[in-house]
Design a protein around this nucleic acid. Structure first.
Lengths: 125, 125
DNA sequence: TTGATATTTGTAGTATTATTTAAATATGGA
DNA sequence: TCCATATTTAAATAATACTACAAATATCAA
C-alpha cells in the first residue's frame, strides 16, 4: 500500500462522524445503506453527511452504487484489511517473539474476531 | 475503546510524517528510538518532529521514556491492536460467512502477519 | 410534463492544524 | 560552575477542514 493511500484513509477516519459512518457500514456488511438511512441513523443534515461520504469514498473506504434515486454505500472491508497489514508489516523487523509478547499485552487477543484470523474462524481458545 | 480515543489515533496517523514515525517505531519494536535518531532517519527538523511526537504520544500511540538527556520513543502496539479490534467489531453483525467472503477478497489474507493471528504464528498456508 | 424526493454542489464563515524560526529547558561532561 | 548537546516550547504565518445554508441535479410517480 502506498503511503498516501494510508494517510487518506486515516484522515477519513479521524472525524468522529466519518468514523461513525464507517463503523455503521462495517456492521451492515454487504447490504450497506443508502445515504438517507445513514443520515437518519446518525442524525446529521444530509448535505453535511454527503460531504463526509465524499471524503470516505475518495479515500475508497466506502463504495457507492446508484440504485434508482438512492445511493447505496458499503464499507470497503478488504481495503481496511490491507491497511492493517500495512500498519503492522515489518513489526519488530523479524523478531516474532517480540511481536508475540506485544500482542498478548492487548486485550483484543482473546475476544478476537474471526475476520482477522488467517484460518477460517477456528480460534484455539 | 472509546470513540474519542480512536479518532485521536486516526488523526495522529493522518499525517504522512507521523505515519512514517510510527511505522519506523513499529519496525524497531521494543528497542524504540531516541528523538534525535528519528529526526535523522526521517530528515526533519527536531522542532517539527517534536511537535508530531507530542501528538503521537498524546494519542498514546507512542510511549516516551527519559534516558539521560535523550527521550526514547516506542510504538504502543497493544493500543494499535485494540484499535483494529474496534474497527472490525460487529462486522457484518454476526454473519461470519459474509465476513469471510470479504476477508478473502483482501490481498493481505495470504501474507498475513503472525502478529494478528489468534494462535501463535502458525498459519495454515 | 409537473411535482416530490434523494442527494450533491457551491459558498462563506469559523476553527483547527502544520511548518518555520527563535528561544527556553534540562542533562551530562570538562 | 560553564559549555555543549538533546529536546521542547512559543509565536507567527500559511494552509486546510468542518458546518450550515441555499441552490442545483437527477430520478420517480402522477
Amino acid at each position: 500500500m502506498e503511503k498516501q493511500v494510508a494517510t487518506s484513509i486515516f484522515e477519513s477516519l479521524s472525524s468522529g462522524l466519518r468514523l461513525d459512518v464507517f463503523r455503521l457500514l462495517v456492521k451492515k456488511g454487504p447490504d450497506g445503506m443508502v445515504a438517507g438511512e445513514i443520515a437518519n441513523a446518525l442524525d446529521v443534515p444530509p448535505a453535511n453527511l454527503s460531504f463526509h461520504l465524499k471524503a470516505l469514498s475518495q479515500a475508497r473506504l466506502v463504495t457507492v452504487e446508484q440504485e434508482g434515486r438512492f445511493q447505496r454505500y458499503r464499507a470497503n472491508i478488504p481495503l481496511m484489511l490491507d491497511l492493517i497489514a500495512y500498519l503492522t508489516e515489518e513489526c519488530c523487523s523479524g523478531s516474532p517473539d517480540q511481536c508475540l509478547e506485544l500482542r498478548t499485552a492487548s486485550k483484543c487477543s482473546e475476544e478476537f474476531l474471526p475476520l482477522l484470523s488467517p484460518t477460517p474462524a477456528k480460534a484455539t481458545t
